[in-house]
């Protein structure tokens, strides 16, 4: 690439595009169980352990969910605190 084209700006490099696309597709393929065990149950267990140190919560009141929305993956953690905690 010449200095002139550098000065006048150029569209995004294709290698960077490749990397972004791969990051997304690899994350998605792992999420759909093509590789290794699902980590969600373990995450949920550990979250319960950590939160229980500070607040007494019912294990059923902690929900962990992974959702896919087009290009994004959303990790949703829903914790319902009992009344006495406040």
């Amino acid at each position: 690439m010449s200095l002139l084209s550098r000065i006048f700006g150029e569209k995004k490099k294709t290698a960077a595009v490749a990397k972004e696309r791969l990051q997304l597709i690899i994350a998605r393929e792992h999420g759909s169980g093509t590789r290794g065990p699902d980590f969600l149950p373990a995450l949920q267990r550990e979250l319960i352990e950590v939160i229980s140190k500070y607040v007494s919560v019912n294990p059923e009141d902690i929900k962990v969910n992974l959702e896919k929305q087009d290009n994004y993956e959303v990790l949703e953690v829903n914790i319902v605190l009992p009344d006495q905690a406040r």
């Binding site: 696309r21 791969l22 690899i26 393929e29 093509t34 590789r35």
Partner: peptide, 18 residues
Amino acid sequence: PEVSSVRDSDRILGILQS
């Protein structure tokens, strides 16, 4: 260093691990 090769390598790593 190319998209299809990287993705397929990821796939074969999964197979290796299972």
